[in-house]
């Protein structure tokens, strides 16, 4: 009896500490990632002593599109899918935004951005609807749709062109009052918080986790699997549109050729502790994952090493971290 009673008494004595330990254990992966990020930042400071506020500014701006793409990927991976058309959707939304905003008034720009966000929701929902209706595997459908959206982007603009409203550029470029806090970071956190947190707390959010974790069980518990999947993909489309807009905002133009965002977003999502099997993880981890991937690239530049070695080390870190993760999982399951 005493063995059973012991811990209970302890828990009553230190509820806060225990809750904290439980929280840390639940978020162990994210916390380790933050630690890895901190080590990388310290390393950056060591190899480049002048790294400071401007460096953080640059980092935030270069991270913004990829971070939003990673959040987009995270949503549909949590829902048990995968979206290989994110890069193409970003290209499409970016060129639509850039081509419509060019030489237009600032107010018109607001309307364009709203329209592009709706466009993102629609193309994401199309992806989801095609998957649900045809029952073709997600990976195949989104792969094929990546051609469709990239082609559509080429229809809008043949070459990089267009423009961006000034307010949109001002929104992401520069510091937010204080040198150490870049506007891009604030925008990222606000956007993700405003869209993701309410969604996650809602029934729909729970349903997305449910269909990702066990589709059959979700179906039997009364979750509308099809519509939930469409909503998950529409959310992915919305975040991809945000990522596309952020590309236009930070570069001032729209480029119809998809960047390397699709595969990088998959890498960041997995690095961020989201299981490709679905139903597990969040959007915060992937954002840290993106920071790590981009910071490696920057460090290589500071070390004046061949930038291609950055790609190598990104790949190695991805492999290493994921192997480490599955090793932990394996040991846990043997216990």
């Amino acid at each position: 009896m005493s063995a059973v009673a012991g811990p209970i008494v302890d828990t009553r004595g230190r509820p806060v500490v225990d809750a904290l330990v439980a929280w840390a254990r639940r978020n162990g992966w994210t916390l380790s990632l933050i630690a890895l990020l901190a080590v990388l930042l310290a390393f950056t400071k060591v190899i480049n002593p002048s790294y400071g506020a401007p460096g953080i500014q640059g980092l935030a701006i270069s991270v913004l599109p990829l971070a939003l793409a990673a959040v987009a990927q995270a949503v549909c991976v949590i829902g048990g899918g995968i979206d290989l058309s994110i890069g193409s959707m970003m290209a499409l939304t970016s060129v639509v935004a850039a081509s419509q905003m060019k030489d237009q008034s600032e107010e018109f720009g607001v309307a364009v951005i709203l329209a592009v966000l709706i466009l993102g929701l629609i193309i994401g929902a199309v992806n989801g609807a095609v998957i649900v209706i045809t029952r073709v595997p997600d990976i195949v459908v989104t792969l094929a749709m990546s051609f469709v959206w990239a082609g559509a982007a080429l229809l809008v603009l043949k070459t990089p062109a267009g423009g961006s409203a000034q307010w949109l550029k001002d929104l992401v470029l520069g510091p937010a009052g204080f040198d150490w806090i870049p506007k891009a970071a604030v925008v990222l956190i606000v956007v993700v918080a405003v869209i993701w947190i309410p969604l996650r707390r809602s029934t729909v959010g729970l349903s997305i986790y449910a269909i990702g974790s066990d589709r059959l069980a979700a179906f039997r518990s009364g979750v509308a699997v099809g519509p939930t999947k469409v909503i998950a993909y529409a959310t992915t489309g919305l975040f991809a549109a945000l990522a596309g807009i952020s590309l236009t905002a930070s570069t001032g133009i729209g480029n119809p050729v998809p960047g390397p965002y699709t595969l990088m977003s998959v890498a960041a999502v997995v690095l961020g502790g989201v299981s490709l099997a679905g139903g597990r993880g969040g959007v915060f981890g992937p954002m840290i994952g993106v920071l790590i991937l981009v910071l490696i690239q920057n460090d290589m530049a500071f070390l004046s090493l061949d930038p291609n070695l950055a790609l190598v080390s990104q790949g190695l870190i991805l492999i290493g971290v994921v192997m480490f993760g599955s090793l932990i999982q394996w040991r846990r399951s043997r216990r």
């Binding site: 998959v266 490709l276 790949g315 991805l318 492999i319 994921v322």
Partner: peptide, 18 residues
Amino acid sequence: FRVHPLIMSLGVSFVVLG
């Protein structure tokens, strides 16, 4: 290591390309 093949081959493709 039972890593998902999608992510493993993706990581290797980064390494090879780099």
